[in-house]
Design a protein around this nucleic acid. Sequence first.
DNA 1: GATGAATGAGAATTCATTCAT
DNA 2: GATGAATGAATTCTCATTCAT
Lengths: 212, 212, 212, 212
Amino acid sequence: MGTPHSPRSDTRARIIEVSLELFSEQGYEQTSLREIADRLGVTKAALYYHFKTKDDIVLGIVERMAAPIDEIIAWGREQKTWSPEMRDEMIRRYADGMAERAPLLRFFHENQPALRESPAGLAFRERVITMMQLVHGPEAEFRDRLRATMALFTAHTAFFLLKQDTVDGGDVVNVWGEKVPHAELDEALEAAREVALEISGRITGHPARDTD
Amino acid sequence: MGTPHSPRSDTRARIIEVSLELFSEQGYEQTSLREIADRLGVTKAALYYHFKTKDDIVLGIVERMAAPIDEIIAWGREQKTWSPEMRDEMIRRYADGMAERAPLLRFFHENQPALRESPAGLAFRERVITMMQLVHGPEAEFRDRLRATMALFTAHTAFFLLKQDTVDGGDVVNVWGEKVPHAELDEALEAAREVALEISGRITGHPARDTD
Amino acid sequence: MGTPHSPRSDTRARIIEVSLELFSEQGYEQTSLREIADRLGVTKAALYYHFKTKDDIVLGIVERMAAPIDEIIAWGREQKTWSPEMRDEMIRRYADGMAERAPLLRFFHENQPALRESPAGLAFRERVITMMQLVHGPEAEFRDRLRATMALFTAHTAFFLLKQDTVDGGDVVNVWGEKVPHAELDEALEAAREVALEISGRITGHPARDTD
Amino acid sequence: MGTPHSPRSDTRARIIEVSLELFSEQGYEQTSLREIADRLGVTKAALYYHFKTKDDIVLGIVERMAAPIDEIIAWGREQKTWSPEMRDEMIRRYADGMAERAPLLRFFHENQPALRESPAGLAFRERVITMMQLVHGPEAEFRDRLRATMALFTAHTAFFLLKQDTVDGGDVVNVWGEKVPHAELDEALEAAREVALEISGRITGHPARDTD
DNA sequence: GATGAATGAGAATTCATTCAT
DNA sequence: GATGAATGAATTCTCATTCAT
C-alpha cells in the first residue's frame, strides 16, 4: 500500500478528459454520449459503468479539474484579513495557469442554461462566488462586487478572444477572424493579467474586517 | 373605419416575444417548440407557418430586438474619427436601456454553443464585434480590444448579477442568493455604467485615425 | 353561345399541367402542394378552390390527359373482330404521339404504390387493361397477354431510357449517362415502334371471336 | 456445445425481411418505420440501433438480396466475348428464380421516385444497367438496348401480372381481377422465360468484340 | 377566385438510459 | 470492465386540409 501499484482503469480519467474537451468545444447539449464513447473507442454502455448519468460526468470533471481553483480559494482563506495586496494576489494566481483552466471555464461560462440546476453546476458556481467574495472582501457594495466579477472574467475572456479555432492546420484565429502568431498568446495572457489588475485595483473594500 | 386597420394577426410578434422570454430563461436547447406553442395557446404547426425553422425564430428575434444596438452602431459610425469622448458615449448609450436589452443579451451570452454556427448567431456576433471595434477604435492593440470587450460586458453582467429569479413570489434574488430591494436595481445600473466607463477610460486608441 | 367568350379561370388547367410535370419528375409523394402552388405563384388554399383533394388533382389529370388513349380504345372497339392488322394498328397509334403522352405514363408507371387505391389510379388502370385486351384479343392465353403488355410498355420504356434530365442546360441524358443529340429522339421513337411491333407480332390471338 | 452458436440476435435480418415485404406491398413512402417496428414487435428506436436511417434499411435490403443478381453479372463477365448464346443464358438465369427475386424487383420498379437519389437506389440501378449491357453486348445501338431492357422487364412483369393480392384468404388474383389457380404460376414463369427469349432473340449485337 | 392563418396527424430521427450477459 | 440490444420519451419538422374573410 502507499504505492499505486496498478494503473487500474484509466478509462474514467479519459472519459473526463475527452468529455471536457467536447463539452467545451461544442457545448453540453450538443455533445452526445455516443460522440464521447466513439472518440474513446468504447461503447456508450461503458460510460455508464463509470458514471451514473451524463450529469455525473460533469461532476467528475469538476472534481478532477477544480483543484487549482480550490487551492487559490484555500490560499485566500488563509489570509485572515482582506487587503489590496491579497486582492491582487488572488487575481494574479487566477490569471496564471489560465491556459490549463480555460476549457473548464469556457465550459461553465457557455453552458449556463444546461448546468444551472445540476449538482455539478451548483458545485462550480459556489466556487466562483467564493472566489469573488475573497477578491472584493466582506460587506462589499455592489460596485466592488461588480469589479471583482469583471476582473476574474477578464482573465478567461482574453483567452476566448484568442480562442483556438484551428484553421487549415494549427493557426490560432481570434474572435475578429484575424490570424494570431503563437507568440502573441503569451502577450495576451500578460495583457489579461494587466487589465484584470486594472479593474481589481479600483476595488476599495473594507480592509479592517475579517475575510469571513 | 378611421382607425388604422389593426395588424391582422400579431401571432408572429407574440412568438418572438415568448420565445425570447423562454430562450433567455431556460436556454435555447432546453426550450422546445411545444413549450412555446403551449404558452401561446397555438399548435406547433402554427409556429412553422410563421417561421421556417427553430433557428429562424432566433433570426426573427434578432431582427426585431437588435434595432437599439444598430442605432448605437449607426451613431458610432457617424462620428468620422475616433475619440475618447465618442468611446465613452458609446458605452453610455449601451449601458442605458440595458433593462430592455437584457433578455436578448443574456440569451446570446448564455447560448453560444447552440448559436455559434447559426445564421442568427452570426448576425448577432457581427454586431457585437462592430460595437467593440467602434469602442476601441481602429488598429487597436490587444490590451485595448480586451478593455473594450470587458467594458461592454460589464453592462449586462451587472444585470445578470441581479438577475431576477423569482423565489416564492416576486422577490428579486441576486447571484449570491441575497434578496434585493427593487430600489437597488437603479443603483446597479448606475454602478454598471460607472464601472464600464472606468474600464473603457483606460483605452488609449489612435485618435488621429479614421473610424473605418 | 357556342364561342368560349371568356377564358374563365385557366388556373385549373395550369394546376393540372404543373402538377403532372412535378408528379412525373419527382413522384406523387415527393411533390407537396406547396411546391405546386409556389410554381404557379398562388397559395395552397387556391388549389383547394379548384380541387377537393390532392388525389382529386390526379383525377383532373386523367380526365384532361387520357383523351388520346380513350380515342385509341374507341377505335379498337369499333373494329368488331380482332385481327393481327387491328392489333398492330393499336400499337402504332399508341406509339405515335408518345412524346406528349410520356409524362402521364411515366407518372402512373412510377407511382403505382401511391395510386393503387385511389379513384384516379383505378380509372387509369382500367384503361390500360382495356388497351391490352384489345391488343391481344378475347380469351387470350397468358403468353399473349404478356406479349401485349410488353409491346405497350416498350413504347414508353424507350422514352424513359432517353429520359430528359436536363444537365447544365438542355442536354438530354439517357439512363446510361450518355448525352443524346436531339436527332436521336426521333430515331428512338421509331425504334420503339419497331420493337413494339416485333413483340406484338408474335401474338396469335383468336381472330374468329368477337372483341368483347 | 457442439452446435455452432446461433446468431445472438437475428433482429437485423428480420428488419430487412419485413421491410422488403412492406415496402414491396405498400411502397416505400407509404410504409412508416412505426409499421415495420410494430410488425416486428420492437420499438422504432430498435430499428435505429441496426440502421442509421430509413434509407439505410434499403441499402441493407440490396446487400442481402442482390446476391443472386450479382452472381448472374459475375457469370456474364466471365464470358470474355459476347455471343447470342451467352445473351440467352443471361436471360434464362435471370428468369429462373424470379419467384424469390420478385419482391425486390417489384420494390425497385414501383418506387423509382423515392429511390432515384438514394445510395441504395443508385446501387441497384447500377446493377440493372450492367445486366442490360451484358445482355446486349458492347457498342449496341438503341434498338438492341431497348430489346435487352424489355427482355429483362418481361421476366418480372409476368410475375406482377399474377401478383399475389390475397383477397378473402389466400387466393391469387391477377391484374385483371381474375382468380388464378396455383398451377398457372409455373406456367406463367415458363411463359415469361419464353417471351423474354423471343425478345432478346432479336438482339444482333457485335459478337466479335469484347464484353467490356 | 383567392388568401392568411391555423390545425391535426404523423413522419423520421435522436438521446440518455437500462440490463442481461 | 465492458458490450450488444433495446427502450421510452422527446424533438424538429412536414403535409394535406380547413375556414373565415
